[in-house]
Simulated assay, not measured.
Amino acid sequence: MEVTQILHMNKGEGETSYAKNSTLQRKTLSMVKPIIVEAVLELMISSNIMGIESMGIADLGCSSGPNTLLLISQVMDVIRGADQPSTITELRVYLNDLFSNDFNTIFMSLPEFFNKLKQGYHDNHQHLMNPFISAVPGSFYGPLFPRKSLHFVHSCFSLHWLSQVPAGLNNKGKICISNSSPQCVIDAYSMQFQKDFELFLRSRAQEIVDGGRMVLSFMGRPSSDPTAAQGPFYQWELLAHALMAMVLEGCIQKEKVDSFNVPYYASCAEELNLVLQKEGSFITDHLKTFEIDWDSSVSDRLDQDIPNGAFVFDDDQMITRSGQRVANSIRVVAESMLKSHFGKEIMDDLFQRYAELISKHFSDNTTRPKYTILVISLIKKNLISTN
């Protein structure tokens, strides 16, 4: 599978589009906002940055839809709300994702975005800070920007995607790590993640100015054991069950399932620290862990009703709707790869089966399944040239 050419979030604004099924990502952005605010405020008073007029910002893995432009608004709000007046008059904003990302939808939303910005500044009698927004397609596992052109880099829900499926996997009947995966499969995924993350850091180290900041949030796991029962890869195990059910009914060939693996890895804090120390260009300011429900759209109401986190639904219809929402949230990020390998004809059937398996999983458990989100705030080291 050529990940850089195939992987993209579902385009447009239909019922199975990323735009309509990205509440999980939006809630994560909301949870991470205080860390972004702190990073930008600290950046503004850094001796390396103080006095600049043009600030370079990159959002890596920006996708499309209503979440895409949130970061720009957050950064602009921080700058104009800072206690000390800022010299920054313009933002150079680079939106990055893979080549097949739906950049057209982003650009179509810009006129409304700019109008809201102008109105907000007019209402508050403030001078308009100009954001110059451009797209930079390509893989962030490699160089994307000129040297020392960026002051702040952000990435949300992207770094758990690997640059490729690990080579030589013998993972028959599964599509990712599971609690029965052999050690060689786990090692292959872990090594691919470490290789990719080191390359990501090395590339950004060339592009970010000394003292610049980076805030990254992505799927992770709470412990060093990736095979924990119903752990960080369990959503993929359920999808594998749906595929294997279709094999038993003769809908698809078993060989097709055996040869398909997802380029996805949920890391742990220990792995992150290992790679950060090895690469050596960044100082860790914060490393935090959050939990968020598989179905984030109902988590707020359930938390209010049941403070101890018990997983209770009102009725079977609620379970079914919740299972469908979670299935859609996986469909919008994985369908491009599945279509390429299995064909588009089976997609509706596959994800209906998947939704039913998720609903059954909800029904059979008394605690709500949660994703673990790792958030890391980094500072680019001041590197003194020896030349």
Rank of each mutant, 00 (worst) to 15 (best):
Q5M: 11
G14I: 14
G14Q: 13
T16V: 15
A19T: 11
L29N: 13
V37T: 15
N48D: 13
M50D: 07
I52P: 00
I52M: 13
D59F: 07
L60F: 01
C62V: 12
S63P: 04
I79N: 12
A82V: 08
P85R: 15
I88Y: 03
L91W: 11
V93M: 12
F99G: 15
F107E: 15
S109C: 07
L110G: 14
P111G: 09
N115E: 15
H127Q: 13
I133E: 04
S139V: 03
S155P: 08
F157V: 04
L162S: 04
N170R: 01
C176I: 01
C184N: 11
A188E: 13
S190P: 05
F197H: 08
R202W: 03
R204E: 08
E207Y: 00
G211D: 10
G211E: 07
G212H: 02
G212C: 11
R213T: 00
R213K: 10
M214P: 05
S224H: 00
Q230F: 07
F233M: 01
V257E: 08
V262E: 04
G280N: 06
S281M: 04
H286C: 02
L287D: 10
D293N: 00
Q304K: 01
P307M: 00
D314G: 04
R325K: 14
V332R: 02
K339E: 15
F342Y: 10
L350C: 05
F362R: 04
F362Q: 02
P369Y: 04
T386D: 00
N387R: 12
